[in-house]
Amino acid sequence: METPKKGFWFEPIEPELQNSEFIAVESKGFLAEASARFLRNKRAVFGLAILVFFAALALFGPFLVPYSYDGQSPAFVNAPPSAAHWLGADKFGRDLFVRLCYGARISLFIGFASALINLVIGCVLGGISGYAGGKVDLIIMRAVDIIYAVPSMLYVILIMMALGANTKSILIGICIPGWIGMARQVRGQIISLKQQEFSMAALVLGAGDGRILFKHLMINAIGPIIVQLTFLVPQAIFTEAFLSFVGVGISAPLASWGSMCQSAREFITLYPLQMLWPTLSISLTIFSLNFLGEGIGDALNPRSK
């Protein structure tokens, strides 16, 4: 090995390089950086594309074909896919494509609406519980335990019986026990975050409780919250599908992905395609939601460059 010349190792650096310890990355706004990070994540973008596809199908799909979801045509009973019926028709000769679109409306609506409601209730109650501690925490967590002790499917079925079988009552039924997981998750996060010095620093600056809780603590719990959220949406879609599948959900002739599976079940050996469309839709939606959630969580973290 060659020995370096004298003075090789240490030389005074140029004055303009003195600040080179600073990382020279151009900062843009938070949203610009977050969306750039999101777009770089291929799986997340793929997930978003699938979801947008289903959302578009739910909104505009029915206008593409000249059928209604309950219009029966005896000539096409159990028809295979064709130019007239893109995905075929069911045992009453109803067009499967248009029913799949209406099903997407109900499934996606229940999925996202319940997730949103659970997000708000869970974050507020879990946040207050974790931040306030003491008696408030005790009361909220005991209420949570009591709600959690009853099987969640029971709420849905009881409310469906009381309020009738429609989307609204499924939504209420899902939301009553649905926020519990979120509340527990948020509470745990807040309890550990509030011990950190930046939370004390905010207090010392004179920040109020609301400011500390939402601006300093909740924002740092956003990763786990989004992960929880990506569980909530599929869970709600599954619950609706399951209810419709066992026959207590959306009532005929309305269509949901679950009720389509239910009616395809009878002839699954003869016409497996009828079963394929709704199950494929459910699977793809949930699959892409997981990718999307992961991508959003990463994108919102300023540390992941």
């Binding site: 938070f30 010095e197 930046f198 620093a201 601006k215 924002i219 956003i222």
Partner: peptide, 16 residues
């Protein structure tokens, strides 16, 4: 006012 011990924990990582 107060200056805290750990400069890694006393700055909120999500704020500029």
């Amino acid at each position: 006012q107060m200056i805290f011990q750990d400069p890694y924990a006393s700055l909120n990582p999500r704020l500029t």
